[in-house]
Structure formats: C-alpha cells, structure tokens
Amino acid sequence: MMLGVIGLVVVGCSTQSDQPPVPDVAMSEASKSSMEVLQRGRAVYVSECARCHEAMMPQDVSEDEWHVILPGMAWNSGISSADEEAVEAYIRAVKAQ
C-alpha cells in the first residue's frame, strides 16, 4: 500500500514541468506580443536567470514581485534594455495564460 502511494507521488511530481513555458500562439495573442519577442524573452530568461540561480517559474511570482525582481536582476546580469523588455513581455505572456 505504501509503495503505491509513493509511486503516485513520484508520478505526480514527474509530470510537472520544471522548465519555463515555451511561447505559443495563444500566449502571443493573449499578451499582444509577437512570437519573436516572446521567444527572445524566454531565451534570455532561461540563459541569464539560470546562470546565477534557479530560474523562478513566471506563473509562481506575482506581478508586484516581478516589478521589483526584474529590474534588479536585469541590472545585475547586465542585459540590454531590449532584452529586459523581452523578458518582461515573456513573463506577462505566461501570466496571461
């Protein structure tokens, strides 16, 4: 019985994605951002955020928290303002789903 419960927990955990969502047409339409901007935002998010620490899932952080986190992390990582804007568009698109 206990082994069955442990199995269900492991299977349940393994189905959750530990990667930020990949932009799709629905995200683009919901956020009114182009796929190109969203793809760039995700690429920067994954590469730059994960360079120093584990990237937080965009949907797990509130809008208010992102307004504080993103500018500071963009400054710390030295990304361009265009990349910062793309990351912000990506985060908003994920949250719009």
Results as ranks from 00 to 15, higher is better:
residue 26 A to H: 07
residue 73 M to W: 02
residue 85 E to Y: 01
residue 31 S to R: 04
residue 43 A to C: 01
residue 53 H to V: 01
residue 53 H to G: 01
residue 16 Q to S: 08
residue 56 M to Q: 14
residue 25 V to Y: 00
residue 38 L to D: 05
residue 53 H to M: 03
residue 68 V to A: 13
residue 32 K to E: 13
residue 23 P to L: 13
residue 14 S to R: 08
residue 76 N to D: 11
residue 63 E to H: 11
residue 13 C to D: 15
residue 84 E to Q: 13
residue 75 W to T: 11
residue 39 Q to V: 07
residue 29 E to F: 00
residue 48 E to L: 00
residue 80 S to W: 03
residue 17 S to T: 10
residue 15 T to C: 09
residue 71 P to F: 02
residue 58 P to T: 09
residue 57 M to E: 14
residue 79 I to V: 10
residue 41 G to R: 02
residue 71 P to Q: 03
residue 73 M to T: 02
residue 30 A to S: 13
residue 72 G to S: 08
residue 80 S to E: 00
residue 49 C to H: 06
residue 53 H to R: 06
residue 38 L to A: 13
residue 46 V to D: 08
residue 45 Y to T: 03
residue 63 E to P: 06
residue 35 M to N: 10
residue 74 A to E: 01
residue 19 Q to F: 10
residue 12 G to M: 10
residue 85 E to N: 12
residue 57 M to C: 06
residue 46 V to Y: 05
residue 67 H to F: 06
residue 28 S to N: 10
residue 26 A to C: 05
residue 18 D to S: 09
residue 21 P to S: 12
residue 80 S to L: 02
residue 73 M to R: 02
residue 50 A to D: 00
residue 66 W to P: 00
residue 14 S to Q: 12
residue 81 S to I: 09
residue 47 S to W: 01
residue 37 V to S: 13
residue 38 L to Q: 04
residue 19 Q to E: 15
residue 32 K to V: 07
residue 30 A to D: 04
residue 52 C to V: 08
residue 57 M to S: 13
residue 59 Q to E: 15
residue 13 C to F: 15
residue 48 E to D: 03
residue 69 I to F: 12
residue 35 M to Q: 13
residue 64 D to Q: 08
residue 16 Q to D: 07
residue 49 C to T: 03
residue 71 P to M: 03
residue 28 S to L: 07
residue 60 D to S: 14
residue 84 E to G: 04
residue 18 D to W: 12
residue 56 M to E: 12
residue 17 S to M: 09
residue 38 L to R: 01
residue 26 A to M: 09
residue 82 A to S: 14
residue 72 G to I: 04
residue 78 G to A: 12
residue 60 D to T: 12
residue 63 E to I: 05
residue 59 Q to H: 11
residue 64 D to V: 01
residue 75 W to F: 10
residue 76 N to P: 00
residue 59 Q to F: 06
residue 52 C to S: 09
residue 65 E to Q: 14
residue 63 E to T: 11
residue 68 V to D: 15
residue 62 S to Y: 08
residue 40 R to H: 13
residue 81 S to Q: 15
residue 43 A to M: 04
residue 22 V to H: 03
residue 36 E to H: 11
residue 53 H to T: 02
residue 74 A to G: 07
residue 54 E to M: 14
residue 30 A to N: 14
residue 22 V to Y: 01
residue 78 G to T: 10
residue 59 Q to A: 12
residue 12 G to T: 06
residue 17 S to A: 12
residue 26 A to G: 08
residue 55 A to I: 07
residue 29 E to L: 06
residue 62 S to D: 15
residue 44 V to G: 05
residue 25 V to Q: 14
residue 65 E to Y: 01
residue 79 I to Q: 08
residue 36 E to V: 11
residue 69 I to T: 15
residue 62 S to H: 07
residue 64 D to P: 01
residue 21 P to V: 04
residue 28 S to W: 00
residue 15 T to W: 13
residue 45 Y to Q: 08
residue 85 E to H: 05
residue 37 V to T: 15
residue 39 Q to H: 11
residue 26 A to K: 14
residue 67 H to G: 05
residue 14 S to L: 13
residue 37 V to Y: 01
residue 42 R to I: 06
residue 39 Q to E: 13
residue 24 D to T: 07
residue 22 V to M: 05
residue 39 Q to T: 08
residue 72 G to Q: 13
residue 60 D to W: 01
residue 28 S to H: 04
residue 43 A to P: 00
residue 21 P to R: 09
residue 20 P to K: 15
residue 15 T to I: 13
